[in-house]
Design a protein around this nucleic acid. Sequence first.
DNA 1: ATGAAAGCGCTAACAT
DNA 2: ATGTTAGCGCTTTCAT
Lengths: 336, 336
Amino acid sequence: MATIKDIAKKAGVSITTVSRALNGYSDVNEDTRKKIIETAKSLNYSPNTIARSLVMKKSRTIGLLISGLMRESAKDNFMIEVMTGVNDFASQTDYDIVLFNTNSSKQREKTYTQLCRERKVDGVIIQGIRTDDPYLEEVVEGEIPCVLVDIPKIGRYAGYVSSDNAAGSFEAGNYLAEAGHTNIGMINGHEYAFVSKERLTGFQKAMMEKGISFQADHIENGDFTEESGERAALTLLERDPAITALFCASDLMAIGAMNGLRAKGYRIPEDISIVGYDNILLSRYVQPSLTTIAQDTHGLGYEAAKMLVDMLDHDGKPRRTLVKHELIVRNSSIMR
Amino acid sequence: MATIKDIAKKAGVSITTVSRALNGYSDVNEDTRKKIIETAKSLNYSPNTIARSLVMKKSRTIGLLISGLMRESAKDNFMIEVMTGVNDFASQTDYDIVLFNTNSSKQREKTYTQLCRERKVDGVIIQGIRTDDPYLEEVVEGEIPCVLVDIPKIGRYAGYVSSDNAAGSFEAGNYLAEAGHTNIGMINGHEYAFVSKERLTGFQKAMMEKGISFQADHIENGDFTEESGERAALTLLERDPAITALFCASDLMAIGAMNGLRAKGYRIPEDISIVGYDNILLSRYVQPSLTTIAQDTHGLGYEAAKMLVDMLDHDGKPRRTLVKHELIVRNSSIMR
DNA sequence: ATGAAAGCGCTAACAT
DNA sequence: ATGTTAGCGCTTTCAT
């Protein structure tokens, strides 16, 4: 593997000159530069980014910490879309992405901060970690530039991107109310997700404004999976068979709810209207297709990367960025 | 950021001793080691992997080159499953994964080899590149340990994982023939995918063995997308309205075919039986659910990572690994 | 415009 | 069992 030393020798100049020539500095004779670039080519030279990183103290990599990137999560194309968003922005820059393995027990001995410091990433994008994650505070308080996805926390070096979950849920509630529903249940996510609180708040607000009674016994928590949605739906309808609509904090839970309900003889949407959240790929394909609040998932990742690179390259301040959301009415919900 | 130098000073030993103590060498007094580990902790020390990589000439990273990792590919959870497979294996090792941005025009000036050499990855897993990719040969012939996914090429430092596409297609053909179909069309992928050839070969073999006529006019190529599947299906049935079954080289094309056909008044599976390939997530959810050849996609990634790490850490030879496949009969196909 | 020299943080002979 | 030294490949003062 050729180094600048080899080039210097062959071109009969010093390594300093080679370095300067290759990096486009102006204080080098154009003829020398030409010769150097040629010899570099002839030696099939590739710069060693490791060596460069060591001296520059910049690795030109950003860490992507996706907690729960595992087999099951493929179902929910949320994560992958965020990831492609990150990738799409990163590919416009010269940052590479390092995927951190966080589902391994081995790595979990280390805090996120340690992970980042060891791998010397310049910044990190964090997605999918829970509110009770012991290392969350550390990274928000820490010195490593960091952008959180769907975790509303801002620190000295930590910003976040999210969609307006309260507003989205508010719209969902509004829509159901205006469709004539007056007895509505909600399947929320678990309490360890930030979005859960916000989605509940927004939905409650809509119910309140519409003058619809909405008590705790009409709320059931799942864990964002199909199975939990099914269970929650059945529980809610057992508790109050008069419910005519269900708002679910994730599409996957909504799909589970539809399946569970249908198995019990309920017709969707004739008996029960269902509204989900996320607009995952599946929601367009299930029968009936799912009414849902779409998030710009790709934008979540894209904006996260953008903010991080802005912090890294242009001394940008950490901030809050909201991506758009939108109610998409399909066939799982109906006027009463 | 504390370095071993700081530790050495504070502990009153040389940096060599610190290095040895921290790396678990045996030739260091246990008391010294204890003291060193303590000082390291007190200084909140993290090793600098960059510096280590530089001297060891090993970065403990593997590159993941997913050509076409972009927004659209989220639909097809094939890539993400391969990726989680890679990730799942890698997280059992101390290798980290670097995602290479290959969809950017900027990077495409560089060959894969350059990309790898610059980022100093120890090895690379390549997925989704086409047979006509100008840089494919270079990496197969090259010196960088490499595992290809679904590209049957072996080199001095290049192995591959795949499923037995010919056998899978053979099974599909067999199944349709035994279900009584005698006039069958095939929607194949484009000629730039290795799997296309194999899937055609296997299917042809089944037709031949069953004594079913299967000519070129019953084959139409798509590009693995829904739209192309729709188009191809329509073309085939216009050409021969007597076709009763369609074998599609990807589920996405199969889904497109179903939609296109249904729009033209064909009933699936009563009029036309459809068999896909891949068993993507959607295939279970579409109506009717799709009969397909399942690939162990996760296994593809898992085995790729395994082979690569074996080559890297245990001097394993590049080889061919096949993951299993399986016919999954659902509701898009029927006996005649 | 070019070069000499120092040093980034670490490992690994080679002493002792 | 511990220290001294050199060096990985690069960038960056500081001279000239």
